[in-house]
Structure formats: C-alpha cells, structure tokens
Design a protein around this nucleic acid. Structure first.
Lengths: 194, 194, 194, 194
DNA sequence: CATGAATGAGTGTTCATTCAT
DNA sequence: GATGAATGAACACTCATTCAT
C-alpha cells in the first residue's frame, strides 16, 4: 500500500473514532489499535494528533466539495441541483455517517483544536463553502431563487441538514432517514424560491 | 451572596469559558481564576467538572425555554410568535452569546461528557424542545403553517439559527447581526407557511 | 461540659473512626460530623490531625497502663496477674474494641505519622510497656517465670494478644472471643513458667 | 530485562518504600524516582497504586509460603520444622526486612486499601496461612504438639514473630537479632509441646 | 467559643509524543 | 519503515487547615 493510501486509511479510522467518541476522548493508541498498527506507525504519517484531525476535516470537505462541484457543473436547474445535493448528502449520512458527523460534531465544535497560528477560520472547509456559494448565486442569477443574503441561504441549507443529521445520530427520528429527504428539499426550496 | 446566587455566578463563568475555549480545553483552575476564587471553591458548589457542565446546560435551556414559554402563551399569531422567538434568540446572541454557543458548540457536540448512567438523551434540553414543539404544532393546527413532519420544521428553525450563530461567532458575517434577523424570519416563514 | 471532657469525647470518636476506616482515610470533617460539631470545633481542642492522633494513642495506653498498674499492685501470684491482665484485655476488646484496634492497627502501623521531631520511639506507649515490664520481672524474681529475655516475653504476650485481636477484628474466629481466653492464658503461661 | 523481571523490580522498590514510609505517605513519584524511571513507567506495569500494593503483598506471601511449604515437605520432626521456619523467618528479617514489615505493618494495617469488591479477606495471604495450618496440624497429629485451638497456636507463632520484628524495626532490641532466635523457638515450643 | 466556606498545595493518573531497537 | 516502552507535563479532585463572622 502506498503512502497516500495508508494516510487515507488512517484518516478513515480516525474520522470514525473521533466522531463516535469525541476528539479529546479518542486516544492515539486507540486509533492505532483499531488499525492494528503501532502508535509510532501513526506518527510516521502524521506529526501530531492535531495534524491528523486537520487532515481528516480536509478529507471530508474535499469529498463533499467534489460531489457538489460535479453537481454544479451539470446542465440542470438549480432546484434539481439542490435536490441532487441533498440526495448526495443523505447518501453520505447513510453510508459514511462519520464523515458528516466529523464535520458537524468534531470540526465545528472544536475549532480551537484545529487552529494553526492565525489560521482558525473556515479555511479547512473553504472548498465546500465555495461550491455552495456557487450553487446559491447561480440560482439567484438564473432567477430561480429569490435574492437574499448569502449567509442566510447558507445557514438555511447547512443548518437544516446539520440539524436533521444530529437528530438522526441521536436516534430521535422515527422513520427511515430517506423519508425526510423529499420534505427537506421542499422546505429548502420553499424558503429560497423566487 | 447566597448559595444559589454563587452557583449561578460560577455557572455564568463556566459557560463563558467552556464556550470560548471548549469543554476539554477549559481547566477548572481557569474557571476558578476567572472568578477570583480557589479551585476548591468550585468544588464547594459542584462535585465535579461534569456536574458543572450539566448544571450549565440546564441553566441555558431553562432560560431559553422560559422565554419561549412566555411567547407561546401570548395571544398572537404564530407568525408573530416565530418573529418574537427569533427576536429573543437574537437578543441572547447579542447579550449572552455564550449561552447560545454553549448549547450548540458545547452541549450538542460533547454529549458523551454530559451522560449520566442511561440519561444521555436530550433530557437536559427537553424543556426547550417541548416549547418549540408547541409553537410548531400550534401553527399547524391554526392553519398558519403547512402540515409537515415535526422534525423537519424543528431542524429548519434550530438549524438556521444555529448556523447563523456559528457564522456570527466566527466573525464571518459582514453586517450587524440584527440586519439578518428579518430575512431569517421571512425565510423560516416562507418554508413553513401554509 | 468542661474542656477535658470535651477533649475526651473528641478522642473517643476519633479513636473509633481512625480504627474503623484507617488514619489516612478518616477526614477531620467526618470526625466533626460524627460529633455533630463543626470542623473548626475540632481545631479548638487539637491544633492538628496529628496532635489528635497522638492524644488518642496516649488516651489508650494510659487506660491500659492504669489497669495493668492496678493489677501489678495487688497481692496475688504472677500467674494470677497474667490471668487478670488477659481478662482485662479481653474486656477491652469486647467493650472498647476501637481502643485496642487503635493501638495495633493505627499506632503501630503508622509510626511516621506520630513522629514529632526525634520523638518517634515508643514514647507514646511507654507507660504501658513499663507496667508489662514490671509484671514480667516480678514473675522472674519470684521464681514463677523462667528467666528469659524481656523482649521475648514481651513479644510473646503482646504478640499473641495482638494476633488474636486481629483475627477477631477480621471476624475469622469461629467461637465467642471469651472461649479463647483461658487457652491463651495457658499458652502464655506454658511458655513462661519456670 | 523482561516484563516479569521489571515488574518484580518495581515490586521490590515499592515494598521497601511502603514499609519504610507507610502506604499513604509513599507517593508514586517517589517510587519512580527511586527506580530512576518516570511516573508513567510504573503505570506501564501496574494500572494503579492499589494494584501495585496488592501485587506486592502477593509477592511477599508467596515467598514466605514457598519457604514454609519446602520445610513442611521435609522429613523431620515438627519441632525441627518450627525451628527451621523461625530460622527462615529471621533470615528474611535480616536480609529482606521490608518483606516482613510489609506484611505486618502495611498489609495487615491497611486492609481497606487492599480491598477489591468483596475480596477483602485474608485471601492475599492465604497461601501462607495454609502452610502454617499444615505445620500446626501435623504437629498435633504426630503427638508432638498438644491439641489446642488452631487460632491460638496461629496467634502465638505469628504474634511473637510479628512483635519481635516490630521491636527490631524500632531498633529497640539491644542485641543482634539472631541471639533472640533460639529463645523464641524455645518459647513457642514450650507453649505448644504436648 | 463555634462555625463552615474558602484555600491551595499536593496526589494519583492520563496520554501525546519520542526514540532506541 | 515499524515498534511500543518510556517519558513527564498536565489535570481533576482532595482535604488539612484557616479565619471572618
């Protein structure tokens, strides 16, 4: 297995454990054990716990961003793009829940830990945000969405998805997650439509 | 200062530090120093860090719930209630940002830490959720809101508020927070209106 | 209640708790609570935990010594004195077990704690030892006991009594304590008789 | 040095310090310093101070028991066995005084600390007691010792040895320890002989 | 005398990180 | 590269002692 692949394997495992047990509750030794490698093995690839956590959030946001970029580039209506995005998002929740959980529960809530010098901003999630911005502005320009403050639209989309993810993680939802999908798209669209 | 007042003073300070620096990054000794009392002083009132964290989230949710309960009981339209709720919420963000931050960034993201025996659910936030439920169901029953899944409405409201709070905390927003308020109410209402 | 009496009341309670739970495991606040007085109340009478522990061992050894002195002064054979001493000792175990336990389990085993400057010796138990010495030497002089090293005799008597006390405390003994008494006197006498 | 050896090295040092300074007075950091290793080093081998203390008493009683077992199995009179046992015991006092001191001063007097769940009994010393029981019963069966209650004999032997150990530790004895040995055997035998 | 809230040095324990093998 | 024993700074929590009331 080459270096990149191994790094990704470590990231995948870290992602899962950090999401399940929390950033500060997960020990490096647990990640190592989970991977059947030694503690030192982790440090061959990542110089510190922090750098592993940073690499993990970049891994997540790049995955999300690349999906969103793909959607943005297709030749469909913005309503349809929104719909596909939510679909992709729900697919992540179903198949890689730790990636979404990592974004919302670990990254957003432990920002101190991810800080490097002055770089405490959203930088690690920037790619993803950029794509969402493109989707929203595109919709406004095309006249599909009404013109409203970007941050409000952004909060709407990411907020509702984050919240439903949370409820899902807490096993509060009574029905299968997919049953909520259509209603969520409708809700978002109702709020944004011109 | 009596015991209750002193407990609340400690909670207020803990709230602020936990929100600013994170739950695990904030040391008991820092809370003590911030209060100009000794470490032991904290333990006079709270038997452990965990119990202080639990007391803090109860403090927050009770405050929020009592405001929301007051609104729910007034004789106004649900749109107006929603509007007032967002107003109250923004007031909290402006004047006690740590209370909101504590709810979203500390409590929701460090659930493990708040667990006591089996009691790991939402129990500490239940009062607040109940009031939001009443508001939503009331609107549906009156025909003001369209009938949609409660969890979707709940995610919409709490999600968008949580997200804008987050952006505010990150100092990403370019304008004064209140300028977003009206647009947020409109957005929520557009998504929920019958 | 005068000062002396109050001191003795405190000593009695400390004795009991120290014996039951150990010297380091018993907190001053527990002694206070047990006495229904305040922590400061203890410090009115004893300047420190150590001084309370020292006063307690003196209380115990003086009680034992005075009983032994009384026996030593009576006009009976040394065998009879021995017998009476064991009887008195068993009476203590039955009625004030904490006093004996304090001597063996607390004092002898936590000598560091009782040290004051250089005074780490037996000084706190000296009175008692002196009386035992008188009894033994008296028996030898009268020809009742065979002449043997004092420390051996001393170890014999205090050792067997200490050990049976321990077994009693551990609830290892199957019969009532008094049933062992006669056999113990016989054993000691067999070992010491001329 | 392999794991077992290292554990034993730690036990030996803990034994010495616990005996010299008391269980609660000896800090883990002192044991570490004494061994020229780090605090964490101790915890590599023992998960807690308590477990180190428990391992230590087991180390001691197994050593004593194995010596006594060896004697019990030889083909000699019980008087001779007793004599050899005392000899072995004195050898321990002379060469590994901390082992004996640990048994009498630390283990017997801090039983609370050694408790694990319900297992607070003599269990950690059981092997040793069993061997002593065999010796005594064997002597009675062979007609060498008079038939007397086991606990009385047990108290006699362990008591006198414990007491002389104590006097030795306190540096009260005026002569070399070995000079007391013969007299002690005689005393025990006089008390037990048929 | 009596109180009990407040103090803060001190303890057992954890865990990210290192480095000799 | 890989290992995992060793490190030691750091933390939550304790409790003997003090002192303002």
């Amino acid at each position: 297995m080459n270096r990149i692949k191994k790094k990704n394997t470590i990231i995948r495992t870290a992602l899962k454990l950090f999401s399940d047990k929390g950033l500060h509750t997960t020990k490096i030794s647990e990640i190592a054990k989970s991977l059947h490698i030694s503690v030192g093995g982790i440090y061959e690839y990542f110089p510190s716990k922090q750098s592993l956590a940073r690499a993990s959030i970049q891994f997540v946001t790049q995955k999300l961003a690349s999906e969103l970029r793909y959607i943005n580039q297709s030749d469909i209506s913005c309503r349809e793009k929104l719909c596909q995005f939510v679909e992709v998002y729900f697919h992540f929740i179903a198949h890689d829940p730790e990636m979404i959980a990592y974004f919302f529960r670990v990254y957003l809530s432990n920002r101190e830990f991810f800080c490097e010098d002055k770089d405490c901003g959203f930088s690690l999630a920037e790619e993803f945000i950029t794509e969402l911005k493109i989707l929203i502005e595109d919709g406004v320009n095309r006249g599909e969405f009404r013109r409203q403050n970007f941050y409000v639209s952004f909060s709407l989309i990411s907020g509702i998805l984050g919240a439903i993810t949370f409820l899902h993680g807490e096993e509060v939802l009574e029905e299968d997650l997919n049953l909520y999908r259509k209603e969520i798209v409708d809700t978002i669209y109702a709020a944004m439509a011109a």
